[in-house]
Write a protein that binds this DNA or RNA. Structure first.
Lengths: 250, 250
DNA sequence: CGTTGGATTGATATCTGTCAAGCCCGGTGG
DNA sequence: CCACCGGGCTTGACAGATATCAATCCAACG
């Protein structure tokens, strides 16, 4: 857990107009005027060091967050120290909707890497929702996305064997990269094996073996965190259980 | 799938005042005046025969439902015919919040038994929310409950072994019975082994063996659908992974 | 009563977790 | 620049858990 110097990001530096993620993030669907309003409402961009927390379970909700760079995992932990990772959030993803119903976060959010997030305070968010009807709809849709994402994960954990789970995950990550304008066939995994194994409900060793097996089957080529999908057809076939094309978030 | 005559339930028969479930259902927290308003907004009480559907995934949301008698399961199904059961809803539970974010249901809802539900149309519900601030809060809290419930299930499927999963389920069901004023030590399971096994992500045979094992260990006594909890302490200990006392819905 | 579908039990195969060893790479200090 | 860590990752061997297949069993119901 060391400190890596991050690009300086002061309040004045916030600019949704220039942000390359604007098509994925809150600005989506807003016109220039609305965008100005949003931009002036963003409180600040904050830096989170690897392994630090953005929020904890039970914390009062102070803001909605948008990931600008890095990666965040959300998880539940049990009294006896075990955890279940619930999701991975990447640049362009919005975070914090889990607290919407109770004003308190239902899970922990920890940085997998040094991370930069934009913060929109709840006050400003509420005000914005008052002014911009489109924002209200986006709020509800985000909660819906959250629920659907969790339901898909339930299906994955409850019905699939380990190889299928990994195939489903890789297929989904590939879709997300495509949405972001990156390669859908070659990308880096944003998380360590340990975290991915936990998310997929299996032992690290099993995950490693499944990576190897997919590689033997010439479906992917993997080297540490770099994954190349060599046979998208067979990958998707393995992930056949998946209900719908892809959800917005892993 | 046969037809069993259900108690006749016409519009005029709706009465939240007399309903034994009022402490668990929408009326909770409402005063007499508000209750009158709610009661007059309930459109009707509808009967659903065993194995019939209350709604399907993708259906437009028409109403919020409250279970009066019987039981409903919600599930996701895959193109290749497999399903993952997401939850079981019992008398007093509210159903339909899954569609809140998109106006479309995210899962199927099927009756496990002949079932009676009260229907509150979305129009009436929205109007009621306008008049009664307390209802607005209840709506958001319901969505939150839904999310937390699914997160708990993810933890169960992802981290526990089969015996612990069953222990967690039984412990949770016991709590719910207590909330309803029924015995927390002895109750009937509302679902078949097949459905419970699916919900808990295991084979029917494994579930059956785990029932037998818990019985051998003198933690429970089980005879078909009747379960007696003989050693609540050890049951809860087995379910130790559980984060919080109990959620409102299984 | 006989039928039927759900539930249990047993035998076995398969999958997955666990333990242990080794590998690889990046970081550190000489 | 190189040798030496140390952590994450992979691999192998094995044990244990769970699924599968098959045979009853049992209760509900006609």
């Amino acid at each position: 857990m060391k400190t890596v110097p991050l690009q300086s990001a002061k309040k004045s530096a916030v600019s949704c107009h220039n942000c390359s993620l604007s098509e994925l993030c809150l600005p989506r669907g807003l016109n220039r005027e609305e965008l100005d309003l949003l931009e002036s409402s963003i409180n600040k961009t904050i830096k989170i060091k690897k392994k630090d927390y953005l929020f904890h379970r039970g914390d009062n909700q102070k803001a909605i967050f948008a990931i600008k760079a890095g990666a965040i995992k959300t998880s539940l932990s049990t009294p006896d120290g075990e955890e279940q990772i619930l999701g991975f959030y990447l640049p362009g993803d919005l975070l914090g909707f889990d607290a919407f119903a109770r004003d308190r976060h239902t899970c922990d959010a920890q940085a997998l890497d040094d991370t930069l997030v934009c913060e929109l305070s709840m006050d400003n968010f509420q005000e914005l929702c008052g002014k911009l009807p489109i924002m209200r709809g986006q709020m509800m849709r985000q909660i819906g996305t959250e629920i659907e994402r969790e339901q898909m994960l339930l299906l994955t954990l409850g019905q699939m064997r380990t190889e299928e789970r990994l195939a489903t995950f890789l297929s989904s990550l590939s879709e997300r990269n495509k949405d972001r304008g990156f390669s859908q066939a070659e990308f880096n995994l944003p998380m360590a094996r340990h975290d991915l194994a936990n998310y997929l409900g299996m032992a690290v060793e099993t995950l490693s073996r499944m990576f190897s097996r997919l590689q033997e089957e010439k479906i992917i080529a993997v080297q540490h965190r770099l994954v190349k999908i060599e046979d998208m057809g067979r990958l998707k076939q393995l992930a056949h259980h998946t209900c719908r094309p892809a959800s917005d978030v892993l």
